[in-house]
Design a binder for these strands. Structure first.
Lengths: 209, 209
DNA sequence: TAGATTGTTAATCGATTAACAATC
DNA sequence: TAGATTGTTAATCGATTAACAATC
């Protein structure tokens, strides 16, 4: 029932719904849009509309069966598909992401990490050994990798990006504070820490009101 | 000239402008809104409007003097104010943030890190020694800390949040995948990795078109 | 049946973009 | 002066919210 269009804003909220539902699945066999909205601090109509666009399993008066809703969200978000991903840049941030065990909940599996620096190659993080850049093409090919994570310093980000694209990656998660140029058809999602920081700083400057 | 209202979307773009301007300050003494828009892949009218809301130093035909614009953005974003911040949770992600040297560009200084686990207390990251939670109040008081960063696992996030608020923190940067309950006047900025991941996954599922 | 909850259609709100006037 | 660029006012677009109809 995923024929309805889902806006990008809705798409970003879906994982939040899923996370909350998973955390209450044992305690609450059924939930309503209002409960979900209250828990996440959102408008209930918005939640209902979001859920309706990917599920359609809601029943008037009854609400939603928690497990059904979880299944629908997982299916829509492709949590079962386990997209293989590679990570370039095994510095502190890269290692943090490699060690983070929460990604598998959403179908992401980092199959290998790479670094240009010989001093980092061979070290391990999150149970994976960091490989030299020369191995990137081989891994992407053999594992059909289409998702790349960039955690190198800003200066090397475009280079890392080009290498990924060259080896067939079509979705890039960029943690470097730079804008990347990519060919049409490749999606870049920038994780922008400076933007978040600006929102917080402004709140403080304005007196925390 | 910061009397104009700045939308949250504009606020999030300002650090991106600042970052790019700093990277070209030596090469380009003057820039136009169109140049900035092209570099960042944005609409030029949007850039002009954004800049106009915090600067007003643009000159028809001339464009902007790079250094003037940088100064205006820095002043608006409070980059000179150096807000002291504390971080709770010195795991991989916490250590990555502690070691990241890019925050000072935007006026953030992490003055201390804390962790509830005795095995982590006493270790260092980014040149700072991790302190026990008992020291949190003292540090917040003596350094007038109003910004807190939460990098603990989801289960401990609300607890960390409450402790921060108790000690006068009014702006919280939450990296844990949970929604936090805070009193009125306290701002929470959620860094939502699962949301970004959803956007990328959907792109792959839809065929990367 | 009556009440609660979903889901849809319409109204509002805010942000982006387009058209135009101002000016160095 | 003429041209380029800013900055503003109006139009469009998209997302959120409100009102209402559908239904178990």
């Amino acid at each position: 029932m995923s024929s309805k269009t889902v806006s990008i804003q809705t798409l970003r909220r879906l994982p939040l719904y899923l996370h909350w539902l998973r955390s209450v699945r044992d305690a609450l066999p059924g939930i309503s849009a209002t409960m979900l909205a209250d828990a996440l601090g959102l408008n209930d109509v918005q939640v209902r509309k979001d859920l309706g666009s990917v599920s359609g399993s809601g029943r008037p008066k009854k609400g939603y069966v928690t497990e059904e809703l979880i299944a629908d969200l997982e299916a829509y978000l492709g949590c079962d598909s386990h997209s293989p991903a590679v990570l370039i840049g095994a510095g502190n941030l890269g290692r943090a992401l490699l060690s983070y065990d929460g990604f598998s909940d959403y179908g992401l599996e980092i199959v290998a990490a790479f670094d240009a620096s010989p001093s980092v190659v061979g070290t391990t993080a999150g149970g994976k050994t960091v490989l030299p850049m020369e191995k990137l093409g081989e891994v992407c090919r053999s594992r059909s990798v289409r998702l790349g994570i960039i955690t190198v310093p800003a200066a090397g980000a475009q280079n890392a990006c080009d290498t990924l694209v060259e080896h067939g990656v079509t979705a890039i998660w960029n943690f470097a504070p730079t804008t990347l140029k990519v060919p049409h058809g490749v999606l870049v999602e920038n994780e922008n820490l400076a933007s978040s920081l600006a929102v917080l700083s402004k709140h403080l400057i304005d007196g925390g009101a």
